[in-house]
């Protein structure tokens, strides 16, 4: 009879759980899987040229003192189309953007660029998602901000919008 407190235990556990559920509901998990490479050196990768008139991109391109964006995209990805005008704006501001196209074909990419414009300095073809996996990228579009030493400063998951431009510029400059 003195052990009555034990009967309150289920209630306490339940209240705790419900509190957690509440937090999970109010602040739902973003579901985005962030790359663990942020703050680290960009790992070795190689994405051969996708277009006849543009070079591909590989890890050696990134430690030459100039900060860049590394954009993971695909011609078959709807949201990537929405992002291109913003990338073109960034390009006009003097930001160098390299693209890695996932599961793509040169002819599809050519059509994609003809229709939407080409904001990239280099476009690499990533067959089999090898480069994507070495970045820890989980989908398209994703953009990595790389500093002049080839370190990953930040990762932007999803479409870049105009509101993101100042932040991206600041991070590029700060690096």
């Amino acid at each position: 009879m003195t052990r009555k407190w034990i009967f309150w235990l289920p209630l306490i556990v339940t209240v705790g759980l419900f509190f957690t559920f509440l937090i999970a509901l109010i602040r739902p998990s973003d579901r985005a899987i962030e790359s663990q490479l942020v703050g680290q050196q960009l790992p070795a990768f190689e994405a051969p040229a996708a277009m006849a008139d543009q070079p591909g991109t590989r890890s050696q391109d990134y430690a030459d003192g100039k900060p860049r964006l590394l954009n993971v995209f695909a011609s078959w990805c709807g949201p990537c189309v929405a992002e291109i005008p913003v990338l073109l704006q960034l390009q006009a501001m003097g930001v160098e953007i390299n693209g890695v196209a996932i599961h793509d074909r040169p002819e599809d990419l050519a059509g994609f660029f003809a229709q939407n414009g080409n904001p990239y300095a280099r476009v690499g073809l990533d067959q089999g998602g090898r480069a994507q996996m070495s970045f820890g990228s989980a989908g398209v579009p994703e953009t990595f901000i790389i500093d002049g030493q080839g370190r990953v400063v930040d990762q932007h998951i999803g479409v870049i919008t105009e509101e993101d431009i100042p932040d991206i510029l600041a991070k590029l400059r700060g690096s």
Partner: peptide, 28 residues
């Protein structure tokens, strides 16, 4: 949508916590 989720959660909290309080009070 989260509103619905919170509604259901509140409902469940009332039932389950209510039952557990009744349990803790009465079980003695």
């Amino acid at each position: 949508d989260p509103k619905r989720g919170i509604f259901i959660l509140a409902l469940l909290a009332i039932y389950i916590c209510g039952a557990l309080i009744l349990f803790a009070l009465r079980v003695g």
